[in-house]
């Protein structure tokens, strides 16, 4: 990768009233036409990371400990809300995890998309409406001419999700952040949406950050993968590296929990226990309370956090685990 389109360095922040970071030392780099997938257990900080990048975390509720963003050569601090707001919806767009949070129930969907277009493009109403229609068609909504004049409640959940996607993509953003955009959808609709995002990427060079818990989706679309656990990236690498050479115990545990579509039936392996809450994080490695390989050093010293950009990095004292064999023997 040459100059990345979007690079984030050492993003850390916490919610007020907490004495531990909810996201800690997170770094990654995203190139044009690339897809970075962020995976990890519920509550590990995927959505708040996305919201931070979009400048949408309530400034009175969060305290940033660090975070430099470089977007297309321009560098700014993550707390620079004004700067981020000027790019939001235009150069950077987001598809939210809950579709209803970003659709206004009181307005026709065509008007909502057209308004988003007009705000950033300064084009006429006619042109904006035409663009809205085009986008609805592209996300596979049948009879889009009629749908333009319908209200959100008249659409099925899957169609609403597609409207959201149409709205996010209407201004040809350079960076798209998609927070579980297909989780609520049926597999056949999901396939359609993923195809559409890929198509737009090749067309416009858009970089995509995809948050998902579906490792199948990751294998299909990712260029790079960040595996998060309890607010930290524990493994970062190319999609090949993550699937063919996973090294962090959490990555391996996560992958073995997924039932397979092929091969012999085997008992699923699990990650024992549940994530501790932010206030109860063990010192040292945050995974040490659940890691089957945890050794005394793990609870004392945190392993180094991966830095986005390099090929394959793992935050574990014992990665790539081969040494575990001798230790156990």
């Amino acid at each position: 990768m040459t100059t990345p389109l979007l690079a984030v360095e050492d993003l850390s922040f916490r919610f007020r009233g907490h004495d531990q970071d909810v996201v800690q030392n997170l770094s990654f780099a995203l190139g044009r036409n690339e897809t970075l997938c962020i995976v990890g257990e519920s509550g590990c900080g995927k959505s708040v990371t996305a919201l931070a990048l979009m400048g949408l975390l309530p400034s009175d509720a969060v305290r940033f400990g660090g975070g430099r963003v470089t977007f297309d050569g321009d560098s700014y601090g993550i707390e620079d809300a004004g700067r981020i707001a000027s790019m939001r919806g235009d150069r950077m767009a987001m598809i939210f995890q809950e579709p209803m949070t970003s659709l206004n129930p009181a307005f026709r969907i065509g008007d909502q998309i057209a308004e988003a277009v007009e705000r950033h493009r300064r084009c006429g109403t006619e042109a904006a409406r035409a663009r809205a229609l085009e986008m609805l068609r592209r996300v596979g909504i049948p009879a889009p001419e009629q749908r333009l004049d319908e209200y959100p409640h008249q659409l099925s959940g899957g169609m609403r999700q597609r409207v959201m996607i149409a709205m996010a993509l209407a201004n040809d953003p350079e960076v798209l952040i998609a927070d579980e955009p297909t989780t609520a959808l049926d597999v056949t609709v999901q396939a359609q949406i993923l195809d559409l995002i890929a198509e737009l990427q090749t067309e416009t060079g858009m970089g995509t950050i995809m948050i998902t818990h579906d490792l199948g989706v990751v294998a299909e679309i990712a260029t790079n993968v960040a595996v998060m656990y309890a607010g930290q990236v524990v493994e970062y690498g190319s999609v090949q590296a993550i699937f063919d050479d996973p090294q962090h115990p959490y990555t391996i545990g996560l992958m073995s929990s997924v039932p397979s579509l092929t091969g012999p039936h085997r008992r699923l392996s699990t990650v024992p226990g549940t994530v501790p809450s932010i206030g109860q994080m063990p010192p040292g490695c945050r995974f040490s309370s659940r890691c089957p390989f945890a050794a005394p050093i793990c609870a004392e010293r945190p392993p180094l956090a991966p830095i986005g950009g390099a090929d394959h990095q793992v935050a574990c004292h014992f990665a790539p685990l081969e040494t575990m064999q001798e230790r156990r023997a």
Binding site: D244, D245, P246, P249, M255, S256, P292, M324
Partner: peptide, 26 residues
């Protein structure tokens, strides 16, 4: 139908086995 089973790379397969053994011990 679903395609034939995917074989993990030997290094990955070895780590998955290591992980499973460690979980069993727990």
């Amino acid at each position: 139908g679903t395609p034939p089973a995917h074989e993990r790379k030997p290094q990955a397969a070895a780590r998955f086995a290591l992980y499973e053994a460690a979980i069993d011990r727990l």
